[in-house]
Design a binder for these strands. Structure first.
Lengths: 143, 143
DNA sequence: AGCTTTGGTTACAATAGGGAACCGAGGATT
DNA sequence: AATCCTCGGTTCCCTATTGTAACCAAAGCT
């Protein structure tokens, strides 16, 4: 028996468009969840953001995303290709040359990713100070 | 010696705002990368999206996000709290009651997250068909 | 007295990710 | 002509993150 689950809604947000929340219920059935999982991967985000500028080769991507391993870059690129977000072009030359470019679908996704990155850049100071004060409060309580 | 890295830029995208890409170079130094990593976590996204509707209790969140473990929900909520995106309110009653709500900062983030979710819902059919054709092509080549 | 409920924590198993070495094909170097 | 180099991977192995399950406290209900 639930004693009052209908609490005061957070009043700083306006619920403009009512996109389905209960859709995320089932892990296997919900395709939106699956696709979000892929997009919400840190490497995918970076790759898409980089490819918006121009077509890049494998090694160019690897240099631009410091910290990514060759294996993870390969995996990420394959997944993005499978999802139709990027296009892989192989030139049968030696040494091999492989170009990666955003597809049209990938470009539309990039628009929203860009918003995310811009948000992060805009609000990073707030987040950093929030972390600092949280850590301070935590260490006070510990005492 | 690079033989022509200045390729034809992907012409389906317009480079409106020139947000820095080389910032992502160094893993430790770049705070934007760190913050993006947190946001681009699948559980965080879902929690923020759910909390936009209204304040929720721990168990309500757990029920809404099918597949999340109690441990991961706790971890995710703590991280979001530390980043100043959600607010945790404990009522000293028995059984315990803990409410989670988006902060104002969290609400601004939600705007862009919503765009991402809407994009996913809009384009899921395209992605699913892209995956299907990719898998078909892959199995052909395997033969 | 014992079971239930909420919101966790802890210990342990599974899985995903990172590091480094290797590979293949041909062109350049010695 | 044997070796080295480049690019774009793949493979193996080990660590780090995630998931699973069990446990906990504290009061209420039966």
């Amino acid at each position: 028996m639930e004693e009052g689950t209908s609490n005061s809604p957070s009043d700083c947000c306006s619920t403009e468009r009512d996109y389905d929340i209960h859709q995320w219920d089932s892990r296997e059935e919900c395709e939106v969840r699956q696709i979000l999982d892929r997009i919400a991967d840190k490497w995918s985000l970076l790759v898409i953001a980089l490819l918006e500028k121009r077509t890049l080769r494998f090694t160019e991507l690897r240099k631009s995303i410091d910290g990514i391993s060759q294996r993870m870059l390969t995996t990420t690129l394959r997944q993005l290709e499978r999802d139709g977000l990027i296009e892989r072009t192989v030139y049968p030359v030696v040494p091999p040359r492989v170009d990666y470019a955003l597809t049209e679908l990938g470009c539309t996704l990039h628009e929203t990713i860009k918003a995310l990155v811009v948000w992060t850049e805009t609000n990073q100071a707030k987040i950093i100070s929030a972390r600092r004060s949280y850590d301070e409060r935590a260490s006070e309580k510990l005492w």
